[in-house]
Simulated assay, not measured.
Amino acid sequence: MTAPSSRPDIIALLADADFKYRADTNTWSHRDGRPFSKEEQAHALTATRSEFLDFDA
């Protein structure tokens, strides 16, 4: 059985995330200050432990 590969769109979202919670939108921010959309936030929160480790590497 092969290990699942990381989803590039998740890695891209994590790489662009500031991870500062915005109280006005209840989401994280992009590095340029734009808030994540609700869809982006929900999608980023589906990241697996493996994807977080890949992102951190």
Rank of each mutant, 00 (worst) to 15 (best):
residue 1 M to S: 13
residue 1 M to Y: 13
residue 1 M to P: 12
residue 2 T to P: 14
residue 2 T to V: 11
residue 2 T to F: 12
residue 2 T to S: 11
residue 2 T to W: 08
residue 3 A to R: 11
residue 3 A to Q: 14
residue 4 P to G: 11
residue 4 P to Y: 01
residue 4 P to D: 06
residue 5 S to Y: 07
residue 5 S to I: 12
residue 5 S to G: 11
residue 5 S to Q: 05
residue 7 R to T: 11
residue 7 R to N: 10
residue 8 P to N: 09
residue 8 P to M: 03
residue 8 P to L: 11
residue 9 D to H: 15
residue 9 D to R: 12
residue 10 I to N: 07
residue 10 I to P: 02
residue 11 I to N: 00
residue 11 I to P: 06
residue 12 A to L: 03
residue 14 L to F: 11
residue 15 A to K: 13
residue 16 D to H: 06
residue 16 D to I: 03
residue 16 D to F: 03
residue 17 A to M: 15
residue 17 A to Y: 06
residue 17 A to E: 15
residue 19 F to E: 03
residue 21 Y to S: 08
residue 21 Y to F: 15
residue 22 R to H: 10
residue 22 R to P: 03
residue 23 A to R: 13
residue 23 A to P: 15
residue 23 A to Y: 14
residue 25 T to A: 05
residue 25 T to Y: 06
residue 27 T to E: 07
residue 27 T to F: 06
residue 27 T to D: 06
residue 27 T to G: 03
residue 28 W to I: 08
residue 29 S to C: 14
residue 30 H to G: 01
residue 30 H to I: 02
residue 30 H to N: 09
residue 30 H to S: 07
residue 31 R to P: 05
residue 31 R to S: 11
residue 32 D to Q: 07
residue 33 G to E: 09
residue 33 G to D: 09
residue 33 G to F: 05
residue 33 G to N: 02
residue 34 R to C: 01
residue 34 R to M: 14
residue 35 P to R: 07
residue 35 P to T: 04
residue 35 P to H: 08
residue 35 P to E: 05
residue 35 P to W: 05
residue 35 P to N: 02
residue 36 F to Q: 09
residue 36 F to M: 00
residue 37 S to R: 05
residue 37 S to A: 02
residue 39 E to Y: 07
residue 39 E to G: 02
residue 40 E to A: 07
residue 41 Q to K: 02
residue 42 A to G: 06
residue 43 H to G: 01
residue 45 L to Y: 02
residue 45 L to C: 10
residue 45 L to W: 12
residue 46 T to R: 09
residue 46 T to H: 06
residue 47 A to C: 13
residue 47 A to Y: 04
residue 47 A to P: 03
residue 48 T to Y: 01
residue 49 R to K: 13
residue 51 E to F: 02
residue 51 E to C: 08
residue 51 E to G: 10
residue 51 E to N: 08
residue 52 F to V: 03
residue 53 L to S: 02
residue 54 D to P: 01
residue 54 D to A: 04
residue 55 F to A: 02
residue 56 D to H: 09
residue 56 D to P: 03
residue 57 A to R: 13
residue 57 A to Y: 04
residue 57 A to K: 15
residue 57 A to E: 14
residue 57 A to F: 07
